Simulated assay, not measured.
Amino acid sequence: MLAKDENLDLALLKIPAANLPYVNIGDSTSLQLGEEVVAIGSPLGYKNTLTSGVVSQTLRKVDGQNYIQISTPIDHGSSGGALFNMKGELVGVTSAGIQSSANINLAIPSSDVKVFLSKPQAEQRLTPSAQQQKPSTNITGVNSAGAKTLASYLNENYGSLDYDGLEVDFEWFVVPSEDGKQYLIGGSMEDGQQWADWVDKQDDDETAMPSLIVYLSNELRNNLKISDTFFSLYLNVYLDKYPSSFPAESITREGRGYRLNYNFIYGSVDYTSGYLYYIIDPVNNKEVQSMKIK
């Protein structure tokens, strides 16, 4: 599963297949009262059942969510089925029926489906290379002692990670924020080839690097009950030649060569909104991007 939205009751799945037939997503906002629509689903287990009806209300709010109200019959097993207009365009995803003689049924509008699909999705491809260990002491507050324990926990359990077959190694360090509200977590990569290979992954999939922040944030939240964290990831390597392709402020002279300490991404998960907010190449780029988390 690449993503889910529990409020919309939608999930995005990835399957090992290619060149599959697909449907065109239509505009649910252009639906008219009384317009004919058809639903395809598996009510009560009867697969590929087609039912017809009309749009009873183009926008109906139920428990704060938007729905299309339809007279098209649906039943248990219909949820997640397609709602089509007469042009064969997907205008909704059937969701629920209300027990009533008035034949009241609901579908998620395609306009909301489009918004859901437009968000960058993070596929879970990260796994720790070592068996996880619990911290020796509980981390009960944001302070220096907790930061030391958290750094040890991260280095013991997440010093080496596997991303889609690529090993990425980190040295973790942690400090409490000045206001005492969150842990600032830095991860340093000291293998330039690993970083270059990971950049190739990022070029192919824009969620490659951000997904590490999501993964570790979720791990700390689930395992240690720590939700307020801010991650910064660095490439820290020694080079014989001046690395002119990197920001000058990331380079210092060291001996006969140069030390590159390049911050390539930072970000934080906001669990209230359900999004990761992050910046790639923060030295040269100030554009905040967002990604829906699982």
Rank of each mutant, 00 (worst) to 15 (best):
S232E: 15
S144T: 13
L235Q: 14
Q132M: 14
V91E: 01
L13T: 04
L235R: 08
D203I: 10
Q193E: 15
G255F: 09
Y262K: 07
K114Y: 03
S290T: 10
G257D: 03
L13F: 12
G192I: 11
L10T: 08
S232P: 07
L50T: 14
V199L: 14
N143Y: 03
V142F: 12
D27C: 06
N285A: 05
L20E: 10
N24T: 15
V113D: 02
V38P: 01
Y242C: 00
N223P: 00
G255D: 07
G180L: 12
G80K: 05
T49D: 01
E35K: 03
A107P: 06
F246W: 02
I251M: 01
T272M: 05
N222H: 10
P176S: 12
D169E: 14
F84I: 11
V237E: 10
D164A: 13
Y271M: 09
Y238R: 07
E89Q: 15
Y22I: 08
V23G: 01
S188G: 07
L13S: 03
L220D: 02
T252G: 02
F231D: 06
G45H: 05
G64Q: 02
A82E: 07
M189Q: 06
S56P: 02
K241H: 11
P282K: 04
Q124K: 14
G81Q: 00
N284E: 10
S152K: 13
V142Q: 05
E171A: 11
S42N: 13
A151S: 15
T149H: 01
G41D: 05
K61P: 01
P282E: 08
I293K: 05
D191N: 15
L154T: 07
S144N: 11
N223V: 03
A145F: 09
E287M: 10
V38S: 13
A102S: 12
Q193Y: 10
V93R: 04
I98G: 01
S144A: 14
N155Q: 12
G88F: 08
V214H: 02
N24Y: 11
D204W: 01
G26T: 11
Y278F: 14
A107K: 00
R221E: 10
Y67A: 01
S152W: 00
L13N: 07
I25F: 02
V174C: 09
Q182P: 00
E123D: 12
S56L: 02
V142T: 08
L212C: 08
D191F: 03
M189L: 13
V283Y: 12
D162Y: 09
T137S: 13
P109R: 06
K134P: 00
L31F: 09
P282G: 10
K225I: 05
T72D: 04
L233P: 08
G53C: 00
L276E: 06
N284K: 10
G192H: 09
S110V: 03
I70Q: 04
K14F: 05
K294V: 10
A145D: 12
F230M: 06
V175W: 02
Q32N: 14
N223S: 14
